[in-house]
Amino acid sequence: MNDEGLVYVSLAQLMALEFKARDLSFLARQPQGSILAGNHASRLRGRGLNFDELRRYQPGDDLRHLDWRASLRTGKPVVRTFTEERDRPALIVVDQRMSMFFGSQRSFKSAVAAELAALAAWMVFHAGDRVGGLVFNDQRIDSIAPLRSRKRVEALLSRVAEQNRALNAGNRDAEDEDQLDKALQRCLAVAGHDHLICIVSDFAGAGERTLQLMRQLSAHNDVIALQVYDPLALKLPSNGRLLVTQGELQVELAIEKRNVHQPLGDFLSGRLKDVATLLRRSQVPLMMISTAEEAHEQLRAELGKKAGARR
């Protein structure tokens, strides 16, 4: 399992995903059945309006834009005018912690997360919006300010590829278990309001603080969560041996034994369900992406797109 893109990704590979993102959109009108369609509590707002100026009321102006305070102060009707935002900033938050360095089928979670981040970045870029992000591992958080520029997309994906290729089975797990929350806290400080925020992670270590931060982020921004998971968390094979690695420690488990299979299966499936339940409580749209299938096709399915629907 050493093929490029299955365990590790390259910058060239992530840049080349641009053409696969052309028929995908977070913001376009979604078909029925899409996670972003209908009256979802966190339906994407799209572009907003920026305040432009105060001016005298003219016949035909929308009365809802009357500024009562200014009108009373001047003794004449005054309206507030607005211009539509030309673009808006997006932050792609990408998890490359050691918890992501695992895969039992096709790809590692870290590689799938990198691909999803690239697809999201290109989707935002093609929508005419500004691309930025946060890329974090167990030790650091890299921040890239949003800008509408192909070079900025490349800068973001370069950080993703750099952190992805730094992952190694010999790496120690971080002693700091709050790195996910720290990344979300940094995102909250950077985002302010009216951002599109796409969080790509397995959400390992998520708890009540994570839930609180997700709710804070979604109060004034559009937030989408992509939870990357491995099929092993849903169903363990009935026989064989499983090598479990944590830093320098490796343990081989005989999973055909009932006293190993049942507790391990319950733990993995329970952990995945707990995190998914927590994320749903945040009212943030949640897409679950498996390591066993191509990221692009899964994202298309989650968005409710049909193959060939938009070319």
Rank of each mutant, 00 (worst) to 15 (best):
D3G: 08
V9R: 06
A16Q: 14
L27G: 10
H40F: 02
R47A: 02
G60Y: 11
D62A: 15
L63N: 04
H65P: 06
L72Q: 13
K76P: 02
K76R: 14
P77A: 14
V79F: 13
E85P: 01
D87R: 14
R88L: 03
P89D: 06
I92V: 05
F102D: 00
F108P: 00
S110R: 05
L119R: 05
D129R: 07
R140S: 09
K151P: 00
V153A: 11
E154T: 09
E154G: 10
L156D: 12
Q163I: 07
A166R: 15
D173I: 15
E175S: 15
D176R: 14
D178E: 02
D181C: 12
A183N: 08
L188K: 14
L188H: 08
A189H: 11
G192S: 15
D202E: 06
D202H: 13
A204S: 12
G205I: 10
G205K: 10
S218V: 03
A219L: 05
A219W: 00
D222G: 08
I224H: 07
L226G: 01
L236Y: 05
P237S: 05
S238P: 00
N239A: 08
V244Y: 09
Q246V: 09
Q246I: 10
E248G: 03
I255Y: 04
H261W: 03
L264R: 06
L279E: 01
E293M: 12
A295G: 04
L299Q: 02
L299I: 00
A301D: 07
K306N: 04
